[in-house]
């Protein structure tokens, strides 16, 4: 009788332990079980070199969402980004999305610069003002090899 009680307690602790580690895995691993409180907007760039899925989307340095998917638009041959934005945030349609680098050699992220248009960006809409990542190397080589006196 006593042995059964002890075994019952042990089992209970094991289950609690498993639940805790499951919670940790979900929380620390950034696994998303539900995607309810977010909406998606699209943005096209001529280059998103260095940007990875899961990179943060920031406005004024505050994270407002993340890059959900990066793919190549086959017809226009542009980088197509799906940005997943928290439902709390609503932006005007002339928001500027630019690929920025945190620090000099840090990770790439998407910076949103708020606009003033009276229309808001709807879920599924496309951001039409985008700035691609600057390719410093090609800029440097262009001005080194240009024949300027």
């Amino acid at each position: 009788m006593k042995k059964t009680t002890i075994e019952l307690y042990v089992g209970l602790f094991v289950i609690i332990g498993l639940l805790c580690s499951a919670y940790l895995v979900v929380q620390l691993g950034g696994l998303k079980l539900t995607n309810k409180d977010r909406y998606t907007v699209l943005a096209y760039f001529s280059s998103v070199s260095g940007l990875k899925p899961g990179a943060s989307v920031e406005m004024a340095g505050v994270a407002v969402g993340e890059v959900a998917r990066i793919s190549l638009d086959k017809e226009r041959q542009l980088a197509k980004l799906e940005l997943s934005i928290d439902n709390d945030y609503i932006f005007s349609e002339d928001v500027i999305a630019s690929v920025k680098t945190s620090g000099i050699i840090g990770d790439k992220y998407i910076n949103l610069s708020p606009g003033g248009a009276e229309f808001d960006l709807e879920p599924g809409a496309t951001i039409f003002n985008t700035e691609s990542s600057l390719d410093i190397e090609s800029l440097v080589s262009k001005y080194i090899f240009s024949d300027k006196e």
Binding site: I96, S98, S113, E131, L134
Partner: peptide
């Protein structure tokens, strides 16, 4: 947009 840098974006950052 000159060399990938937008004029409007440049002014917007200043006015922010």
């Amino acid at each position: 947009i000159i060399e990938g840098v937008s004029m409007v974006s440049n002014y917007r950052e200043q006015y922010r």
